[in-house]
């Protein structure tokens, strides 16, 4: 496992074919996700697989279409980078020599704050998945920040790349041919993916999953639709202006839940006031917030994907041979 990771990184360093490097990055993320499973971090593994291996790799590939596949050999001496890298590595190893042993249950990391999350978390939040509980309630404000990071990225990409659909390809028929099989398979696949997305969205309080993962999965379904049926059709299903509005709506749901807590006499993001029974209130708040996250993430991934794919058409001399 670990050895594979090391090999992947070395290969990525050495490769001058950026297409290969992008794929290696996907593999690297995927291996990391498996490693996370092994370390009991199921939610993180899920997200890393969906986001790192999925979204990032797709974005990398769509960029390479525009910027060219091969990188030049650089002429600089590698001395300075090596010194910086060496110093960083040395500092890291130095720091780790005094670290608590791997897996030690008595390590300070596990005995202070985290203890309450494990022992009382499910009871106090009404949610058996402690990760969801901490994410959406104890550290709900961090998660609000995280949704804003997604929103920022969406806005930033749309501002930089623009949102117009350029060129006039009207449907996907020319893109991949009018393959009946593909269209049928595509439709079935999309239905299943969306069903799975719904499950992940509303089951995140009991098992692995939640708004982030569900938002990404939903976006994937639409992206598949885009690939099979063409951009114009996909945009008829979900016009661009609505994807960006969805991000805003999702965020406003989250903020709204937070402000509702304030209006009911608690601090910002206090969900316990949302129902007469504080634990029920917590649970309700978590569900609502996760829903807001799902909507916002879906909108953001779609917007970013659209911004990148909107640029694909005009071939401004940047289109190499991918």
């Amino acid at each position: 496992m670990l050895a594979l990771l090391v090999v992947t990184v070395i290969a990525a360093v050495r490769s001058t074919d950026l297409f290969a490097a992008a794929i290696l990055f996907g593999i690297y993320s995927f291996l990391t996700a498996i490693l996370f499973m092994d370390l009991d971090a199921v939610d993180v593994a899920f997200t890393e697989a969906a986001v790192g291996a999925g979204v990032s790799t797709v974005l990398l590939l769509s960029t390479l279409r525009l910027t060219g596949r091969y990188e030049q050999r650089h002429k600089h001496s590698p001395a300075l980078p090596l010194v910086v890298v060496g110093l960083t590595g040395a500092a890291l190893v130095y720091g780790m020599t005094d670290a608590p042993d791997f897996g030690d249950p008595e390590a300070p990391a596990h005995t202070h704050v985290a203890k309450r999350y494990i022992e009382d978390g499910p009871r106090e939040t009404g949610v058996p998945n402690m990760v969801t509980g901490v994410l959406a309630s104890y550290r709900g404000y961090d998660t609000l920040g995280e949704v804003f990071v997604v929103f920022t990225a969406g806005l930033a990409v749309m501002m930089l790349l623009g949102t117009r659909v350029r060129g006039g390809r009207s449907s996907g028929r020319e893109a991949i041919g009018d393959l009946l099989v593909l269209r049928v398979v595509g439709k079935v696949l999309i239905a299943f993916v969306m069903l799975f997305g719904l499950y992940v969205q509303f089951h995140g309080d009991y098992g692995a999953g939640g708004g982030f993962q569900a938002g990404v999965i939903f976006a994937t379904a639409l992206i598949v639709y885009d690939l099979v049926f063409g951009e114009a059709d996909a945009r008829r299903v979900m016009p661009h202006i609505w994807t960006e509005r969805l991000i805003a709506i999702g965020i406003l749901i989250y903020l709204g839940v937070g402000v509702a807590g304030m209006l009911l006499g608690g601090p910002f993001l206090d969900y316990s006031k949302l129902a007469t029974d504080p634990v029920k209130g917590e649970h309700l708040g978590i569900l609502l917030v996760e829903f807001g996250i799902g909507v916002a993430v879906f909108g953001a991934v779609m917007s970013i994907f659209n911004a990148f794919s909107g640029l694909r058409l005009p071939s401004e001399g940047g289109r190499d041979d991918v």
Binding site: T47, V134, R139, D142, G145
Partner: peptide, 14 residues
């Protein structure tokens, strides 16, 4: 296992 680092990293992945 400790859920807190998981939460932090979910944020950091995003």
């Amino acid at each position: 296992s400790n859920p807190l680092p998981h939460v932090l990293i979910l944020t950091a992945i995003v």
